[in-house]
């Protein structure tokens, strides 16, 4: 009885088991990739509907101000409805804006690993009038950008999430713009961080993480 073939069987079984386990574990539910997952157990204060029109000329191209800055309160579930206005493919993509500086025009966005595409080209039909929905909850106050990855030069605008005023915000969309200098009584000290940051080697700066928005964007209070 030659059971030597068991060796090959064992090898195949091990490889199969490894493959199955990896496939299984890597298909664990996450918040993106397979569409936005509503985080269970999160308390939202309410739902806010926000409709935007997708046009290659710019967001809301034929509906008032082009590329409007959206203001959202913290902890609300924002339901985006994207209505197509032309027969071109679009996406709705969000990311934090770590290079935000008040009073400057928005020219670039943070692409890459951290961006979250709420509405993909596949969800849109390139038929004017068609709409797609997706929702997102902003956990952290701060500055975000939203854009279309197909037309990032024209369809690019800001979102500001107001952390401090979230308690008093009603269910209306637009709250007050964030006063970037609120609570800062040390503005006379200019920004000591810039000089301090010069001590960093350039490789550290080149991969600035999400948290760095605080250093670069705002005049921080010195405790």
């Amino acid at each position: 009885m030659n059971k030597g073939k068991l060796g090959a069987v064992y090898g195949i079984v091990i490889v199969l088991l490894i493959g199955m386990s990896l496939t299984f574990v890597l298909s664990a539910p996450t918040s993106s990739g397979g569409g936005l997952l509503d985080p269970a157990g999160l308390k939202t204060k309410g739902t806010i509907d926000q409709t935007i029109y997708a046009d290659a000329g710019g967001w809301n191209y034929s509906h008032g101000a082009i590329n409007p800055t959206l203001y959202f309160p913290l902890d609300y579930k924002i339901c985006f409805t994207v209505i197509e206005e032309d027969n071109l493919p679009h996406t709705l993509t969000l990311n934090k804006d770590s290079k935000y500086a008040p009073g400057t025009a928005l020219t670039t966005y943070e692409n890459g690993a951290t961006a979250l595409t709420l509405i993909t080209t596949g969800q849109l039909t390139q038929i004017p009038g068609h709409s797609a929905k997706a929702s997102y909850i902003f956990f952290q106050p701060g500055n975000y950008t939203y854009w279309c990855t197909v037309h990032p030069t024209t369809m690019l605008a800001r979102i500001q999430v107001n952390g401090t005023a979230s308690g008093s915000a009603a269910t209306s969309i637009v709250s007050q713009p964030i006063n970037q200098n609120s609570g800062n009584h040390h503005s006379s000290q200019s920004n000591p961080l810039i000089s301090a940051l010069n001590h960093f080697d350039s490789s550290s700066l080149s991969i600035l993480i999400k948290t760095d928005q605080n250093i670069l964007a705002r005049d921080l209070p010195v405790f």
Partner: peptide, 25 residues
């Protein structure tokens, strides 16, 4: 062991690469 190897390889750069956007993996 294959889990360990995969998660190690995913750390090759400071920002998440293999699991970007799905860091919980």
């Amino acid at each position: 062991g294959s889990f360990g190897l995969l998660m190690r390889v995913s750390l090759i750069q400071p920002n998440p690469t293999l699991f970007s956007g799905r860091e919980v993996l």
